[in-house]
Amino acid sequence: MQSKIKIFGDQQAGEEIQQFLARWDEVICQLNIQNIAELCAADVCFFDVSCEMQSLMAYQKMWERYQNYFREGLKVYRRDLVIHADSTLAFVHCYSKIDNLNGIATPSITWCRTTIALRKIQSQWKIVHQHISVPVDVVTHRSKPLTFSC
């Protein structure tokens, strides 16, 4: 389920970011490492629940570790997508998950909080920073799955 998109700032840049995200989703679901690399800046920085890294090479290696988990028929789902953009810099935040293309949710796949920063480099949008997290209960130190009503 995709929800309404809010764009703040440069509307044209915001629309470009939406097109970029559609391409990003495609290459992620195909787990095409070369195409993933082409959409990132050389100094891309990534913060995840389990790790952090800086550099395109480290980012590529991270995605390679997921090859045994990805399969045909996947889709990136986003909720509450917000884009802040000007002509050269954009900031995106939303809830997201990768799940079955057919829309039947996999119970073990939870929603994550996602933030992506992009910069326009030589007329192309590139990811310069990405952060994915799952909320954690500070008392129990256990993840708190995000749930949404339809």
Rank of each mutant, 00 (worst) to 15 (best):
S87Y: 00
R78A: 07
A105Y: 07
C94D: 04
S87W: 01
V82P: 03
Y69H: 14
G103E: 12
Y95L: 13
D86T: 01
P107Q: 08
T110E: 15
L101F: 11
N102L: 03
P107L: 11
G73N: 10
T114M: 08
Y77N: 04
N100W: 04
A90W: 00
R79L: 15
K75P: 03
L89C: 05
N68D: 07
F91H: 15
N100M: 01
H84G: 03
W111K: 05
K97W: 04
S96E: 13
L81T: 08
I98R: 12
N68M: 04
Y77A: 05
S108N: 12
S96K: 08
A90E: 01
K75R: 05
G103K: 09
N100A: 12
R79C: 11
S108E: 15
I98F: 09
N102M: 04
V82A: 09
H93Y: 13
N68L: 06
N100I: 05
Y69P: 01
C112L: 14
C112D: 12
R78T: 10
A90F: 00
H84P: 02
C112V: 10
R113Q: 11
V76A: 06
I104T: 06
C112T: 13
F70A: 05
N68T: 08
R71A: 12
H93I: 04
C112E: 15
G73I: 10
Y95T: 04
D99Y: 06
T110G: 09
V76P: 02
I98L: 14
S96Q: 14
Y77I: 03
C94T: 06
K75H: 00
L74C: 06
C112R: 15
T106A: 09
G103Y: 10
S96W: 08
L101S: 13
T88S: 00
A90K: 04
I98P: 00
H84I: 03
W111M: 09
Y77V: 06
R71W: 01
D80Y: 14
T110L: 05
S87Q: 04
A85V: 00
T110H: 13
T106L: 13
H84T: 02
R113E: 08
A105D: 13
R79M: 14
G73K: 10
S87R: 02
S96Y: 08
D86N: 09
L81A: 05
R78D: 05
K75T: 04
S87D: 01
I109A: 13
F91P: 11
S87G: 00
R113H: 12
W111R: 10
V82I: 12
L74P: 02
I109R: 13
C94Y: 04
S96V: 03
T106K: 10
R71V: 10
V76F: 07
H93G: 01
S87L: 02
K97P: 03
V82L: 03
D80N: 15
L81S: 07
A90Y: 01
L89M: 07
S87V: 00
H84D: 06
A105I: 07
V92Y: 06
R78M: 11
A105C: 03
R113A: 09
R78N: 13
I109Q: 12
